[in-house]
Simulated scan of single mutants.
Amino acid sequence: MTADVLQVEERGAVTWLTMNRPERLNALDPALTDALRHYFEGLNARSTARVVVLQGAGRAFCAGLDIKDTTAQDGGARGVEEMLEKQKSIRDIMLAMRRCPQPIISVVQGAASGGGFALALASDIRLATPDARMNAAFIRIGLSACDVGVSYFLPRMVGSSVAAEYLLTGRFMEAQRAYGLGLVSRVAPLADLQADAQSLAEDMLNATPVALRLTKDALGLAIDAPSMEAVIALEDRNQVLCTQTGDFREGMQAFLEKRAPRYTGR
């Protein structure tokens, strides 16, 4: 089932994940939810994947929770404890995406609504097609717009006023506005974005494995750091740790010799 709803293609150290429910705009049913959570929770520093690219099959990235799935409609009948576990099963995907050491690039095509919006926001880099449309759809179906990490990510990325505009209304954010706000890095046709994603991933692989992991880690922590001094202390830690690896010496030598580095992860 996992192979059906989530395709995993390894291209060397870059793994391409494709949500594969195009007939439902890749909406999150229990099978896809479980597949995404298990994949991201399984990533660690020893994984063969060093960079992950996330995309959706067909004409959409992810339309959010599949509300036609019967388990998504009977919240009142299921009780608090059962619904809390269901909620955690989804939100844990975003937590795992932020905690895993691999940078994540999302290629957002068409709709990224609700949980799909959260998946895009939990990624490190977002690329969007011209028809990409993102929204906090939760508020349009009787729920709070503050869900599965959206109210954490969005104000930090676009500011509190813009975040309130989209969270309080559930309006769609079009690709060009997302680009203007810095929420996405590029707007282009799908084939171009897929090539861009591969190129970005390959550039990331020019970093040593430990340097890439520590950079993602520090970027995430810096957002909530209490002071500049705390961030600089974290940067100091990263640099000293990096210098203790054989890969650091290989990277320096490769730079001086004007050749591609050969990292071993040590």
Score class of each variant (00 low, 15 high):
4 D>H: 10
4 D>M: 12
5 V>C: 14
10 E>Q: 13
12 G>D: 11
15 T>L: 05
16 W>T: 15
18 T>L: 07
25 L>Y: 14
26 N>Q: 11
26 N>L: 07
30 P>G: 10
31 A>S: 15
33 T>N: 15
34 D>T: 15
35 A>E: 03
38 H>N: 09
39 Y>N: 06
40 F>Y: 02
42 G>I: 09
48 T>G: 01
53 V>D: 02
55 Q>V: 06
58 G>E: 13
60 A>P: 00
61 F>Q: 04
61 F>P: 00
61 F>D: 02
67 I>M: 14
68 K>G: 11
73 Q>C: 13
80 V>Q: 02
85 E>D: 08
85 E>M: 07
85 E>Q: 06
86 K>F: 11
94 M>H: 07
95 L>C: 01
96 A>R: 10
97 M>R: 12
98 R>I: 07
98 R>W: 07
99 R>K: 15
99 R>L: 14
99 R>D: 15
100 C>I: 09
101 P>Q: 13
101 P>Y: 14
102 Q>P: 14
107 V>P: 11
113 S>I: 11
114 G>P: 08
118 A>T: 06
118 A>R: 02
120 A>H: 05
124 D>H: 10
127 L>S: 06
128 A>S: 08
131 D>G: 01
132 A>H: 09
138 F>I: 03
138 F>M: 08
140 R>V: 04
140 R>H: 10
144 S>N: 12
145 A>R: 08
147 D>T: 11
148 V>P: 01
151 S>V: 05
151 S>R: 04
154 L>Y: 05
163 A>M: 00
164 A>T: 06
169 T>N: 10
171 R>Q: 12
174 E>D: 13
176 Q>S: 13
178 A>S: 13
179 Y>M: 12
187 V>R: 12
188 A>R: 07
189 P>H: 04
192 D>A: 09
194 Q>G: 08
194 Q>D: 11
197 A>C: 04
199 S>A: 12
202 E>S: 14
204 M>Y: 15
205 L>S: 00
205 L>Y: 00
211 A>R: 08
212 L>S: 03
213 R>D: 08
214 L>I: 01
216 K>L: 07
218 A>R: 13
220 G>S: 07
220 G>Y: 12
231 V>R: 04
234 L>R: 15
238 N>M: 10
248 F>A: 03
250 E>Y: 02
252 M>E: 00
254 A>Y: 02
259 R>T: 13
259 R>L: 06
260 A>S: 13
261 P>S: 03
264 T>I: 00
